[in-house]
């Protein structure tokens, strides 16, 4: 039977369209307009062409922020994905402890970003923070406000604390969906624990793990609040990731033109990754039916 074709339902999308126009499209168009002009305030603009784009594309400062951002995302992924899978493998499959584990794992995900930042900012201080004091007592002088390596450690550890549960929960959901028959077959074949993981669990978790990788990459690539609260991008510019540097440029220095060009290039990277994310997800959905 042929389905009736009725395109009138598209009108139901109109409210969202209007909302997105006001919250995203019009501001984005304004940013594009800013990116080709210079201003000294008072809403007076001067044509500058593609100069700002050239400046941003060849600026060592932006390259630095981009490099730090990629390094941060790479470190965070390299820790969170294996750790999340390991935690998921250790979680109980049935019984009362399942709910306890799930609630405990979900807790960090529910805390607002700036609160996470404040928690770690205080925790790491050597005068009043538990972690800072403890490290101090052990003879390690830990100071994330002055030592770039320490700043990186605290920002990475904070992100791992905040988001590993997401990976673990996704991996756990993937593990739970494996039918018991696979494990029984593996037992009959006397497969080792490693072989069960390598040939049953890992392939079955592929879809959710891919989603976890892409989600974590996107989130860490756009990170702003937590490092801003903890280190403010410092010491110097050691933890100035893309968002932090962009805000410094746009609001701190009020360089609207370069900041607009910067944010458009940043947006292009996000757009490409989002597109890959969407394409991979829909391809997996289709493949798994």
């Amino acid at each position: 039977m042929d389905k009736p074709v009725n395109q009138k339902a598209w009108f139901l999308v109109l409210p969202v369209l209007v909302l997105v126009a006001f919250s995203a499209v019009i501001p984005l168009m304004t940013v594009v307009n800013y990116s080709v002009q210079d201003t000294f305030g008072n809403n007076v603009f001067f044509w500058h062409g593609i100069g700002w784009f050239q400046e941003v594309l060849t600026s060592p400062r932006v390259h630095g922020a981009f490099g730090r951002q990629l390094l941060f995302s790479a470190i965070v992924l390299a820790i969170q994905i294996p750790l999340g899978v390991a935690i998921a493998l250790c979680m109980p499959r049935r019984g009362i402890w399942v709910s306890v584990c799930l609630v405990l794992m979900a807790l960090p995900l529910l805390i607002p970003w700036n609160v996470v930042g404040t928690i770690w900012q205080i925790l790491g201080r050597s005068d009043i923070g538990l972690l800072g004091r403890a490290l101090d007592a052990m003879g390690i002088s830990f100071n994330y406000a002055r030592n770039p390596l320490h700043a990186w450690i605290i920002v990475v550890v904070m992100d791992v604390w905040h988001w590993t549960s997401l990976v673990a929960l996704l991996a756990y959901a993937g593990l739970r969906s494996i039918p018991q028959a696979y494990y029984q077959a593996a037992e009959i074949d006397q497969a080792s624990r490693w072989k069960v993981f390598r040939y049953i669990e890992l392939p079955k978790m592929r879809g959710v793990l891919l989603i976890a990788v892409l989600l974590r990459f996107m989130d860490s690539f756009m990170i702003y609040t937590e490092p801003f609260v903890v280190t403010g991008g410092g010491p110097g510019s050691a933890t100035s990731f893309l968002s932090i540097d962009l805000v410094k440029m746009a609001l701190g220095q009020f360089d609207l033109g370069p900041a607009a060009a910067f944010s458009l290039l940043y947006f292009l990277v996000i757009l490409l990754v989002s597109w890959v994310f969407y394409t991979v997800m829909t391809t997996i959905d289709r493949a798994e039916g």
Partner: peptide, 10 residues
């Protein structure tokens, strides 16, 4: 629309 700072090329 002055606040949007339109230019002909954009």
């Amino acid at each position: 629309l002055q606040w949007m700072a339109w230019t002909a090329p954009t």
